[in-house]
Amino acid sequence: GATAVSEWTERKTADGKTYYYNNRTLESTWEKPQELK
């Protein structure tokens, strides 16, 4: 079946920190989402 992984995108802030952005829920998080573990 379909997985939720594609909803999350790994992004970088202007100062180079990595965060994760969810295209479906429009939420962002510093922690790696469960779906990516």
Rank of each mutant, 00 (worst) to 15 (best):
G1Y: 10
G1T: 13
G1E: 12
A2K: 09
A2S: 14
A2G: 14
A2P: 14
A2H: 13
A4F: 06
A4H: 13
V5A: 15
S6V: 09
S6H: 11
S6T: 10
S6W: 09
S6L: 10
E7F: 08
E7Q: 06
E7T: 04
W8D: 00
W8V: 01
W8G: 00
W8R: 00
W8Q: 00
T9G: 05
T9R: 08
T9H: 09
E10K: 05
E10N: 02
E10A: 07
E10S: 04
E10L: 05
E10M: 08
R11T: 05
R11S: 05
R11C: 15
K12I: 12
K12E: 07
K12F: 10
K12W: 08
K12S: 08
T13D: 12
T13Q: 04
T13M: 05
T13S: 08
T13K: 03
T13F: 03
A14Q: 11
D15S: 10
D15I: 03
D15R: 05
D15T: 08
G16E: 03
G16P: 00
K17L: 10
K17M: 09
K17H: 09
K17D: 06
K17F: 08
T18N: 04
T18D: 02
T18E: 03
Y19L: 04
Y19V: 04
Y19T: 02
Y20L: 01
Y21A: 02
Y21D: 01
Y21R: 03
Y21W: 10
Y21I: 07
Y21M: 04
Y21K: 03
N22T: 00
N22P: 00
N22S: 03
N22M: 01
N23P: 09
N23Q: 10
N23D: 07
N23K: 11
R24Y: 11
R24I: 14
R24G: 04
T25D: 01
T25N: 03
T25E: 01
T25G: 01
L26S: 11
L26R: 14
L26Q: 15
E27R: 06
E27W: 03
E27H: 04
S28P: 03
S28E: 11
S28D: 03
S28R: 11
S28M: 15
T29G: 02
T29M: 09
T29D: 03
T29Q: 13
W30F: 15
W30Y: 10
W30H: 05
K32T: 08
K32Y: 07
K32W: 05
P33W: 02
P33E: 02
P33T: 02
P33V: 03
P33I: 02
P33D: 02
P33L: 02
Q34W: 14
Q34N: 12
Q34D: 15
Q34L: 13
Q34E: 15
E35M: 07
E35T: 06
E35S: 11
L36D: 07
L36E: 07
L36A: 06
L36V: 07
L36T: 06
L36C: 12
L36N: 07
K37L: 15
K37M: 15
K37V: 15
K37R: 12
